[in-house]
Design a protein around this nucleic acid. Structure first.
Lengths: 350, 350
DNA sequence: TTGTACGCGTTATCAT
DNA sequence: ATGATAACGCGTACAA
């Protein structure tokens, strides 16, 4: 089962190179290169001829050679420290959708935000691999030093997040604050007056935005928000359970809880079940993200759908748009809207 | 914040190359190359000297150049068509753990098993990117044609799966059959005699293995398995709901259900809740995988823990073990054991 | 054990 | 508008 072989007759392929194309088209390598790279200054007839040969030969440029010559790899990096599997995978999916049919591939790089070496690690990664660009996922995307680093090493980047943290070229954001306000207003509209908040971790912009939206709604309705009705979690199921139990101990107990993500909201429902509190009869719950868990627990969660796949797709298109044609070339939005998804976890208070 | 760079005062970088090392160490490129690639025939003293220069310069070989010269990229591919996010992410985590500290990066490639172009797509991918190796995740890992393709294009591969589908060098498997037997015996030990099975999709080896384990246990206990007590799902929550409802309609109703994965088991619990069937009082449920959902629904699921991260880590180490030192160089097991995790979803029948 | 000369496939420079 | 030639950085024959 031998491979390679340069002799044409020999079994397997020996993929054609730019030289083969040049020879058969009676032009120089450079001209072929110009065709590949869509150089504008090129005789139309010459281009036709070269393209014909390319097609006949089934020639495809060698990515390794291009990477060496261009000092730039055809790879898009995905840098993240997001603990939620569904979230990360959805983002991967969005990026891959944008990259599909292009010469780009996606390489995944989890980082440890708590490590002092984080920035150095990323720097090494970017400089060594010479990535074409990277997509920064929340929450690490909120790190300005990381964005500055990308800029410094000459790597394009697009940040994803819950608010505009950067200029439109480098950002794809959602309108969390607005939608959490809407979600909270929905609870108020159902008659709830004592609403608890489980906010996300300190220092996370998403946590801040969602809290602000929550406060916006209460303020607009003239409701007060006692400090005691705010608990904090770190976006995990377990901290949702803990935070919920803290709120359950209040007297009077909140009749509704908004949790800053679905994982924690699922923790609330779980904790309620443990304490014999009926959802939604005795407690309404709203989450955020609309990850599958929201629809898979009982009762299914009312939540805010975060357009995560679309956001990731837009982010990747922003990166490669200059190089590839088609839809990716169109200007990509820097904000994508979320929406409220109503399910069974909300009801009027008793 | 300038780094290395001995040369042209020019601002950015100018990373040292193999030539710089050779010059400063008073040896030829080739000797440096030998040091990098750990050639055995090398004067110890020479090696020391070169390594010293490498350290001082902070020299790191350029991956793009190596890829071109070696006709092989330092990338490990992850090929999958697994719909379960947690599963895929755990596998990614395992692979990344194995790759950490090496020169390898991971590139992710989802494929569409239903597409007629699947094999051609993968072939193009492998030939173009010249991957060092790929890890094949279930269920696509069960596709023998895919493995043959890897072999054909000269790409190393390791398959992950629920049974030994290939020789030890190309396989990391778990002992599903054994553990499902154990899980089922646990139900029988609790007193259950009417046990339903929700099996996985037709054609999936994991589904087959788990069904066999289930049948093994019933047979060993002298219990019959009416065809009507077997429902089929496709590993999703929704099909778990549907299958559960089919089993609930039986008379007499099964007092326990084994579902071939956690997603479907969660669907069973959900469906039971909808019908007012108490779990575990009126229905015991066991799942498979021990993904987070198992512990996050009520009641938490008894399930089989699939050592997915370890399996992926072992798979990646098998691929890169020849090249990198340390733990990865040790022979990697081709089978990793699962274990039964007992939680609250199982109780004796009434 | 070490060095020389060349190849890997592409892009960039600077002519023409 | 196109071409000859030199990078790009590293690995491999083959020679020494």
């Amino acid at each position: 089962m031998t491979r390679s072989a340069q002799a044409p007759a020999a079994g397997r392929t020996a993929k054609p190179t730019i030289n083969d194309v040049a020879r058969l088209a009676n032009v120089s390598k450079k001209t072929v290169s110009r065709v590949i790279n869509r150089s504008p200054l090129l005789n139309a007839e010459t281009r036709e001829r070269v393209e014909k040969v390319i097609r006949e030969l089934g020639y495809v440029p060698n990515p390794q050679a291009r990477a060496l010559a261009l000092r730039r790899n055809f790879l898009i990096g995905l840098i993240h420290d997001n603990p939620n599997a569904q979230m990360v995978l959805n983002m991967q999916q969005g990026i891959l959708e944008a990259l599909h049919g292009t010469d780009f591939e996606m390489v995944v790089r989890p980082v440890d935000r708590s490590s002092a070496m984080m920035l150095d690690d990323v720097r090494t990664f970017l400089e060594r691999q010479r990535l074409f660009g990277v997509v920064l996922l929340p929450p690490i995307s909120e790190n300005d030093a990381l964005a500055a680093l990308c800029e410094e090493v000459g790597c394009r980047y697009v940040r994803m997040g819950s608010a505009q943290l950067d200029d439109a070229d480098h950002m794809v954001a959602s309108n969390d604050r607005e939608l959490v306000k809407e979600a909270t207003e929905f609870l108020i509209g159902q008659g709830h007056r004592l609403i608890g908040l489980i906010e996300g971790p300190d220092g996370f912009r998403s946590a801040q935005e969602r809290r602000l939206g929550f406060e916006d709604a209460l303020a607009a309705a003239g409701l007060s928000l006692p400090r005691s009705h705010i608990a904090r979690g770190n976006y995990t199921f377990e901290t949702g359970v803990t935070a919920a139990n803290r709120l359950f101990d209040l007297s009077p107990r909140p009749t509704a809880i908004f949790a800053s993500n679905d994982e924690m909201a699922a923790g609330v429902v779980f904790a309620a079940r443990e304490r014999g509190i009926a959802v939604p009869e005795e407690l309404s719950v709203i989450g955020f993200d609309d990850t599958p868990i929201a629809a898979h627990i009982w009762p299914p969660l009312t939540t805010v759908r975060w357009p995560i796949v679309s956001m990731a797709r837009a982010a990747a298109r922003k990166l490669v748009g200059d190089v590839v044609g088609g839809e990716a070339a169109a200007p990509q939005p820097s904000e994508l809207p979320s929406m409220l998804v109503r399910r069974a976890s909300v009801a009027p208070p008793r």
